[in-house]
Simulated assay, not measured.
Amino acid sequence: MKTFPSFVRGLAVVCTLAVSLAAGAAQIVVGQVAPLSGLDGTQARAYSTGIQLALNKANKAGGVNGHTFSLVRKDDGGRPADNLAATKALLSESRPLVLAGYFGDRIVGELVGSKLLETENIALVGYRVNEIRGEVPLVYSVRANLRDEINKITEHLVTVGVTRLGLFYPDGPGAATLLTAMEEVMKARGAKLTAKATYVQGTNKVPNAVVDTFFTAAPQAIIVVASGAAAAAFIEKYRLDGGTAQLFAHSGADIEQISQRLGEDQLKGLAITQVTPNPYKIAGRLSKEFSDIASKAPNLEVPMSYAMMEGYIAGAVIVEAARRMGPKISREGFVNALDSIDVDLGGYKVGFKPGMRSGSRFVELTIVTATGRIRQ
Rank of each mutant, 00 (worst) to 15 (best):
207 P>E: 10
176 A>T: 11
239 R>Q: 10
170 P>I: 07
208 N>T: 14
238 Y>Q: 14
221 A>S: 12
218 A>S: 15
166 G>N: 14
213 T>F: 01
219 P>R: 14
187 K>P: 00
198 T>K: 07
177 T>P: 00
173 P>H: 12
233 A>Q: 10
216 T>C: 02
186 M>E: 15
180 T>Q: 09
190 G>N: 10
219 P>I: 04
216 T>Q: 11
200 V>F: 02
182 M>F: 14
220 Q>S: 07
220 Q>T: 13
187 K>I: 02
183 E>Q: 09
233 A>D: 09
208 N>I: 06
210 V>C: 08
211 V>H: 07
221 A>Y: 11
201 Q>M: 04
230 A>E: 14
238 Y>A: 09
195 A>R: 14
204 N>P: 06
180 T>K: 08
222 I>D: 03
182 M>D: 12
189 R>D: 12
231 A>G: 13
230 A>S: 11
173 P>G: 11
232 A>L: 03
225 V>K: 08
200 V>Y: 10
226 A>L: 07
169 Y>T: 12
209 A>R: 06
223 I>W: 13
217 A>N: 15
214 F>M: 13
204 N>L: 02
183 E>P: 00
230 A>H: 08
176 A>L: 02
224 V>R: 04
197 A>H: 11
210 V>L: 14
225 V>P: 00
196 K>Q: 07
176 A>C: 04
173 P>L: 06
182 M>S: 08
217 A>C: 08
236 E>V: 01
232 A>Q: 10
169 Y>W: 12
223 I>D: 02
184 E>N: 09
205 K>N: 11
205 K>Y: 10
209 A>W: 03
166 G>M: 07
231 A>R: 03
224 V>E: 01
221 A>K: 11
168 F>A: 04
169 Y>G: 00
181 A>D: 09
209 A>D: 15
180 T>H: 05
182 M>G: 01
202 G>F: 01
215 F>Y: 06
221 A>P: 03
213 T>V: 03
196 K>I: 02
185 V>N: 06
192 K>S: 13
229 A>K: 05
